[in-house]
Every structure is written in C-alpha cells, then in structure tokens.
C-alpha cells in the first residue's frame, strides 16, 4: 500500500475551470518527490489534496488507505504536514517557541513532550537562540524555516513543503536541502514544490512535472532532465551542470549528471583514463 494515493483526481475552485484534470499518482514511504511546473499548473492544488486541505471534486485521495474525504484535516495533520509557500499564511504566534509548540500542545501531548519536540525542531532548523523572537522580526528565509519547524514538532510521516527555498540565500538553500536529507534519512517522506532545478537535483529522487492540471511526466530525477523538448515546452531549464553534461555526451560524459561533484568525478575519471 502506498502512503498517498491520488486516483483520477479532478478539482475545481469555482465549478468552472478545472485546476486538476484527472491526476493519478502514488507516493511510497521514504520517497523524496519534487512537484515542478509553471505557476498556475496545479502543483499546490495537488499537494493540498495530500493532507486534506482540499478534497477532490471528482476522484479520490487515499492517505494510508483511508479516503481523505472521510477524515477531518486535524486528524490528517498527524500524518501529513503542510508547509505553506507564504509564511504569513501560517504564522500566527508572537514568539518562535509558541509557534513551534502550538501543534503538539493542541494535540494534547504532555508538556514535557511538547517542550522536547519544540526544542528539537527549533534546533534542527537552525533557529536555536531565536526562541523568544517575534516571528515577523525574522527575515523571510528564517520565517520559512520556522514554518518547517512548526510542522516538524508534529512529527508527521509526510512533509509537503511548498517552495521552501524562496527568499533563502545560498546558505539557507543548503540548510533546507540538508534538512530534507535528514528528515528522509529518519524515514519521513518528503514532497517538495519548487522552481529551483538545482535544488530538485540535490534533494529529490523523483520528479512529477505538472502543467495545465495534468501530469506531463513522472520519473526519476536522473531521467527527466534528459527530456529536453518536454522541459522546453514546460519552460523548465535543467541545472547548469546538467546542461553542461548534455553538451559533452559525445565525449562519454554521462547525461544523467545532477551535481557539480558528480560532474567533477566523471570528468576526472575520463581525463585520467586517457592519460594512461
């Protein structure tokens, strides 16, 4: 059984235009999946179905085998945590600590447990020392990390992160990437919505390309960046290093390269081979 299953999901916000037009996919435990595609294509609408914030107009979504239509969103929050694109849509407390402890406190956990989870989540996102700061005094990048922490304290099985790298500097990007790796290592499933293809290459093993309410492609990250025509039609540019690899395939550079390190290794082995 998949952790999340979408079966022929159609969705309309206004009963006129369909934002999702028959989307089907399954997400298994421990996967890291990137939802990519231009704005207005349906990425966020789809992800909001995973934790029951939205319910399908037609079709169904199952979380651990149970249809989301039969579950209240507050129940689903224990399984699937959703981090909004805009931190202002999520943050409502006047202190970092209160923002992070709200979820577990509200869930009725013991105060020791609430405290432990809060401290742990704040530390993991690198906000230690900011516990008493007003969230709106944090810069945008740190606000986004705070919204991740406030979901981490609920300890969900699935994290949906909507554009976690927007407004981050490079350090912040790496911090979010590292966080995703660590969450995934500890068994969590991560779904990330992003426009940052270098970030996709670093964190996701699988990519789902969504446009005009439909899934255009659903495949391993290593393969999708080779579909240059499809990407061009969806106005998506592969990471710079992958584009370089694509231009050098006639010299035996693998086209599946995703990171600078992979590229350096590949070139070193080619250059050494010829020296012998």
């Amino acid at each position: 059984m998949k952790l999340i299953e979408a079966e022929d999901v159609w969705f309309s916000y206004n009963h006129e235009v369909m934002a999702l037009k028959g989307v089907s996919l399954g997400i298994g435990k421990g996967e890291t999946v990137a939802l990519i595609g231009q704005n207005g294509g349906g990425k966020t609408t789809l992800a909001k179905h995973f934790n029951g914030l939205l319910k399908p107009t037609k079709g169904r979504v199952l979380v651990k085998g149970v249809e989301t239509r039969t579950l209240p969103a507050n129940k689903l929050a224990f399984t699937v945590g959703y981090v909004f694109q805009n931190p202002a849509h999520q943050i409502f407390s006047s202190k970092v600590r209160d923002e992070v402890s709200f979820g577990p406190h509200n869930a009725g956990l013991s105060s020791d447990e609430v405290e432990r989870r809060t401290a742990e989540a704040i530390e993991k996102v690198g906000l230690k020392g900011y516990e008493d700061v007003h969230p709106y005094d944090l810069d945008y990048g740190k606000q986004k990390l705070l919204t991740v922490a406030s979901i981490m304290s609920m300890n969900p099985e699935v994290y949906c992160l909507d554009e976690p790298t927007t407004g981050q500097d490079h350090k912040g990007r790496w911090m979010v990437a590292d966080l995703i790796h660590r969450l995934n290592d500890s068994g969590a499933t991560v779904v990330v919505i992003t426009h940052d293809m270098r970030f996709v290459a670093e964190v996701a093993k699988r990519v789902v390309l969504i446009a005009d309410g439909r899934i255009l492609a659903d495949m391993p990250t290593k393969e999708i960046f080779e579909k240059s025509e499809m990407l061009r039609s969806a106005q998506i540019k592969p990471p710079q290093i992958t584009e370089l690899a694509h231009s050098l395939t006639r010299y035996n550079v693998p086209a599946s390269i995703l990171t600078v390190t992979e590229m350096a290794d590949a070139l070193q082995s080619i250059l050494r081979l010829h020296q012998r």
Binding site: H170, K171, Q240, I241, L244, V260, A264, L267, Q268, L271
Partner: peptide
C-alpha cells in the same frame, strides 16, 4: 561565505589540476 558561484566555475576550481 556561503555563496555558491556558478556551477561551471565551481567545477573548474575542483578540476584546476587537470
């Protein structure tokens, strides 16, 4: 400083010897 230069530039720094 935590700034990522362009990927192709970073690659050249790693492969400087070669």
């Amino acid at each position: 400083m935590g700034i990522d230069p362009p990927s192709v530039t970073e690659l050249c720094e790693i492969l400087r010897g070669e």
